[in-house]
């Protein structure tokens, strides 16, 4: 778990050595093929020993994404959708997807001072934006379906986390999933089932698209421990976002484990974003209401 360096009567510990190793790895697979993966597992099990509930972020934790940026993923979805609803090109659908998402994140219902968008609302707004003729609700449902199909193709279950969950359940821990995502819980379940993930081990799956409160504002954590009638110290959460999955749960009194995405993967996703901008909009640095992935 920690990098130790002893000189005489002095010990120097790099607290986040394992997290740094994950950041420095060439890929998820690369890290988990190394001895550090076992040390990470041991560290997590050690931390989980004092927890009753172990909570996981989903995307880029339980399910690993590939090297495509979110923008490129949307471009894939847009291209797939033009096959199902001719009349507009993929670029138009992509622009609609980006802007409708920004409307949703900006203007959705505020709960506990925070807001979260929903794919169903985003998709319907896209149909209004594109002035789709006919039943726009139906067209929105078709978009959602297309998006889930493309997601399924671009996601894979993280073997490390999959095994970890089995071990935790065998040790008597409850496992829950917490996701800050525009996909609602049912849609996420559908994705996990598509990927043959054993959901029977998971007692709760919470999406902030349903709850409106979210991890990045910290508002979801108190709600969960109150609902489950447990003290914050009974929870251990882990995920890839420093703020949502590490800092905010700690501030709520939970234990937390930071599992960052390898930097090399982020660099590839970032490049994917710029390439997509160049292809779709003519310039790498197109100013969109969707930022490039941060490093």
């Amino acid at each position: 778990m920690q990098d130790l360096n002893q000189i005489g009567t002095t010990v120097i510990t790099r607290i986040g050595a394992l997290e740094q190793a994950l950041k420095d790895a060439a890929s998820f697979e690369d890290f988990h093929a190394s001895p550090a993966s076992e040390r990470l597992r041991d560290a997590i099990m050690d931390q989980a020993s004092s927890a009753q509930i172990v909570s996981f972020d989903i995307f880029d934790t339980v399910l690993w994404r590939d090297d495509k940026s979110e923008l490129e993923r949307f471009a894939y979805i847009a291209r797939a959708f033009t096959g199902r609803m001719p009349g507009h090109d993929a670029r138009a659908w992509l622009a609609a997807r980006i802007f409708s998402a920004s409307h949703a994140y900006q203007m959705s219902e505020i709960v506990d001072g925070t807001t979260e968008g929903r794919l169903s609302d985003i998709a319907l707004n896209m149909m209004h934006a594109m002035r789709v003729a006919g039943d726009r609700q139906e067209a929105a449902r078709l978009w959602c379906q297309t998006e889930l199909e493309v997601e399924t193709r671009q996601l894979r279950v993280a073997p490390f986390i999959d095994q970890l969950i089995s071990q935790l359940v065998a040790d008597g821990k409850q496992v829950i999933f917490l996701s800050d995502m525009y996909l609602q819980a049912d849609q996420i379940r559908q994705l996990l089932n598509n990927l043959a993930f054993d959901l029977g081990r998971v007692t709760r799956l919470i999406s902030t698209a349903d709850e409106r409160v979210n991890k990045r504002s910290g508002t979801i954590f108190p709600r969960i421990f109150r609902e489950m009638d447990l003290q914050p110290g009974a929870f251990l959460h882990m995920g890839d976002s420093l703020t949502s999955d590490y800092i905010m749960p700690i501030r709520s009194g939970w234990a937390a484990r930071y599992l960052p995405v390898p930097r090399a993967t982020l660099i590839k996703r970032r490049e994917s974003h710029f390439q997509c901008c160049a292809t779709m909009f003519g310039r790498r640095q197109t100013s969109l209401p969707m930022a490039a992935p941060a490093l």
């Binding site: 002095t10 010990v11 510990t13 790099r14 997290e19 950041k23 700690i250 930071y258």
Partner: peptide, 15 residues
């Protein structure tokens, strides 16, 4: 338990 990015923390212990 600081909530600071653990990759940015070094602990030196002088016995």
């Amino acid at each position: 338990a600081s909530g600071i990015d653990p990759t940015r923390i070094t602990l030196i212990e002088n016995f």
